[in-house]
């Protein structure tokens, strides 16, 4: 992985795992609370925006990490074992993405019947798509970080 590490943010698998949890929670809470409480006070709204931004920053950092870069590396830059790990990470990432899309479909359909909160306008929906894209980009790297054995933590 040396060739991919030259331009990547160095990060231990443990850090990458914690960062992935933080990013998912921050973005989930930031968007979820804004949807659930439409007339949220201004200060709280600003705090949620900061939380979402921090989550997005975490996702970008994960994408730029050694794990994200291994996931995006070309075949010539990594050995066969790493290629297999990368390809398997993409397969897992695909399943998460499809599961999220199907969940979003059912939620949207249900929300129209049960009156659950939905994005206020197309701009807010586009924001959610942006988050989905960023998370999807970071996801293969996150899977790699979670699949790295704990005893390799110090070697990252």
């Amino acid at each position: 992985m040396d060739s991919t590490r030259q331009f990547a943010v160095r990060m231990q698998p443990r850090t990458a795992r914690l960062l992935s949890l933080f990013a998912a929670l921050a973005i989930g809470l930031g968007h979820g609370l804004e949807l659930a409480v439409p007339d949220i006070p201004r200060t709280s709204g600003q705090l949620l925006a900061v939380l979402r931004l921090a989550g997005l920053g975490g996702a970008i950092l994960l994408f730029l990490s050694v794990w994200g870069q291994q996931a995006m590396a070309k075949d010539a830059m990594i050995d066969e074992r790493q290629q297999r790990e990368r390809d398997r990470a993409f397969a897992a990432a695909h399943r998460w993405m499809v599961a999220a899309a199907i969940l979003a479909f059912f939620y949207t359909d249900l929300s129209r019947k049960l009156g659950l909160p939905l994005p206020a306008d197309s701009g807010a929906a586009a924001d959610l798509i942006n988050v989905y894209v960023l998370f999807s980009l970071a996801l293969p790297g996150v899977v790699l970080a979670w699949r790295t054995p704990a005893d390799l933590d110090d070697d990252a």
Binding site: D87, F90, A91, A93, H94
Partner: peptide, 8 residues
């Protein structure tokens, strides 16, 4: 797995 990578 490579097909999944391209799909992603």
């Amino acid at each position: 797995d490579r097909a999944y990578m391209l799909t992603h």
